[in-house]
C-alpha cells in the first residue's frame, strides 16, 4: 500500500504563513476531497506535500521516505500530480499528451514500447477519448481536454493521484463524467486526493472530506460526519441546509 504522510507541515512566504501545523495522511483505497475557500491554502498544501515548494518545518513522507529528497521520477511513479489546467505551449496530438503520462518510466512519446503503448491505449479507452486520439489538443473542447489530462494521469499507473480542480470550468455533465473516471480509478485499488469547489459534487463522490481554512485543517472525515451547516458557515461563510448528501445554499453569511 502506498501512503503519503504529512506531519506538522508549515509553509510561509515572505513571513506570511500559508499553512500551519498540517497533518494528513492519504493512501490507497479512498477518494479524498480537499475543500476550502479561495486562499485557504489548498494548492500550497498539494505542492508542499509533493515536495515541489519549500516548507518551513514538518515532514512529508512517501512510504517513510522524504518526498522532497526523492528523485522526481521515483516520486512520479507513486504519485501522479495533475495541477490546475494550463495552456499548452504546443498543440500536440492527444495520444502524445497521454503518452507523456509514461514520462517517469523514461518513455519516448515518439517511440513507445509495446507495453507502454498498451497502457496508453487502455487509459485512452477508459476515458472514452479513442475518437480524439489523433486530434490536436487545440481542436478540443474544455471537457475533452479535461478527459485527455485524466487519461494522461491514469497512464502513469501511479497508485496515488493528486488533482487540483480537475473539473474547474466544466459543465455539469462533464464534471460528473470526469469524477466518475477518478472514482473508477480509485475502485481499482488506487487512491486520490482531489481539490473541488463544488460542494454537492464533493458530497456525492468523497469517501473522505478534508476541510481547510486559513491554512489549517479544521475537519477531516466522512461526508456524513463533517458536512454540516455549522461547518459550511465556519469554513465558507455561507448559510446552507444539508439533507443527506444534498446541499441547499441560501446565501452568504
Amino acid at each position: 500500500m502506498t501512503k503519503l504522510a504529512v506531519q506538522d507541515l508549515k509553509v510561509q512566504i515572505d513571513n506570511t504563513p500559508l499553512l500551519n501545523d498540517i497533518s494528513l495522511s492519504i493512501g490507497t483505497g479512498e477518494l479524498s476531497i480537499l475543500l476550502g475557500p479561495n486562499g485557504s491554502g489548498k494548492t500550497t498544501l498539494l505542492r508542499a506535500a509533493l515536495g515541489l515548494i519549500k516548507k518551513q518545518s514538518g515532514t512529508s513522507k512517501l512510504n517513510d521516505e522524504d518526498v522532497a529528497a526523492l528523485p522526481p521520477s521515483i516520486r512520479a511513479k507513486s504519485i501522479a500530480y495533475l495541477p490546475q489546467m494550463q495552456q499548452l505551449a504546443w498543440p500536440l496530438l492527444v495520444k502524445d499528451i497521454v503518452a507523456l503520462g509514461r514520462f517517469a518510466y523514461g518513455s519516448n512519446i515518439n517511440k513507445l514500447t509495446s507495453k507502454d503503448r498498451d497502457i496508453v491505449y487502455e487509459a485512452i479507452s477508459s476515458c472514452d477519448i479513442e475518437h480524439l486520439s489523433n486530434r490536436r489538443m487545440n481542436t478540443l473542447s474544455g471537457g475533452e481536454k479535461a478527459r485527455v489530462h485524466c487519461a494522461r494521469t491514469f497512464a502513469s499507473r501511479a497508485p496515488l493521484i493528486i488533482a487540483d480542480e480537475p473539473v474547474a470550468a466544466l459543465d455539469p455533465r462533464h464534471q460528473y463524467k470526469v469524477l466518475d473516471l477518478f472514482k473508477s480509478y480509485v475502485a481499482q485499488g488506487n487512491g486520490a486526493l482531489i481539490v473541488l469547489h463544488d460542494l454537492s459534487l464533493a458530497a456525492k463522490y468523497a469517501d473522505r472530506l478534508i476541510w481547510l481554512k486559513d491554512g489549517q485543517i479544521v475537519a477531516d472525515g466522512s461526508p456524513t460526519e463533517t458536512l454540516t451547516p455549522q461547518r459550511l458557515a465556519d469554513v465558507y461563510q455561507i448559510d446552507a441546509e444539508v439533507v443527506g448528501s444534498g446541499i441547499t445554499i441560501k446565501g452568504a453569511v
Binding site: L50, L52, L82, P83, Q86, L88, L92, L100, F103
Partner: peptide, 21 residues
Amino acid sequence: RHGLSALTLGEEAASGLGLNL
C-alpha cells in the same frame, strides 16, 4: 530533448510527471 516534450504541459505539470526541472 524528452524533457522539453514534458514542458509542453507547463512547468508544474512537467515536474508532476517526474521531470527534474
